[in-house]
Design a protein around this nucleic acid. Structure first.
Lengths: 104, 104
DNA sequence: TTAATTGTTTCCATTTTTAGAAACTAATAT
DNA sequence: ATATTAGTTTCTAAAAATGGAAACAATTAA
């Protein structure tokens, strides 16, 4: 007999576990290695292998591996393709330091 | 005589004006065209020309123009180089839809 | 242990981005 | 209007990312 639970309940259960995507209020500095870790976390939450995710995205498992381990940089387009295949939304924001300006 | 005001005060004054970076709570979908607009907004807040920003980053003004108008995609590394030159921090987060999972 | 699965690394070819330079357009100032 | 500044587009070459394939390593299952 199978039991159906929501992803929210899963998050409640596994919140804070390494390798899982945490709640919305968690923000990350935009860096390639952090992005790679997020891709891996999202893939694992979807219970996919790199090969399966590769099929969804349309690339080979080797590309997914390279992205997750941030072997090199990546283009925005590639990042978006992968998160889209994982049915995940990515948001960002920019914060500028509170420098002082001279008003003439 | 010059008057010195903080960037916060500037934001208070110009909040909502087109082409300015708005407050932290404003989030943006991670897309190349939105990133380009943010680069332009940040550059203008720093009161820099494309040529000056190019010098800071170490590229020609043409590259800056291409990024801002999102003529093509861009690598994460390039995006970060530009925002760093603008002394701006970029954060992101991933939200996964609340799908249902089958637990065996 | 062995077999099967999953993930990593390497090689090569192709595509795309990055870069400099110059020509061009648009906007601003004198 | 003309000159100056700012931004865009095009051209070329170089660097880097992407992609397929196979070999390799690591993990898991039987």
């Amino acid at each position: 007999m199978k039991k159906t639970i929501s992803l929210s309940e899963m998050k409640d259960k596994y919140l804070g576990m390494p390798g899982t995507i945490e709640r919305d209020q968690y923000e990350y500095e935009l860096r390639m290695d952090v992005l790679g870790k997020m891709i891996r976390a999202a893939r694992l939450e979807r219970k996919l292998t790199q090969e399966e995710l590769g099929r969804l995205v349309g690339v080979q498992k080797a590309q997914i591996s390279k992205l997750e381990s941030s072997a090199n940089s990546a283009t925005i387009d590639t990042i978006l393709k992968v998160f889209k295949a994982l049915q995940a939304e990515v948001s960002f924001y920019v914060k500028m330091e509170d420098n002082f300006l001279q008003i003439p």
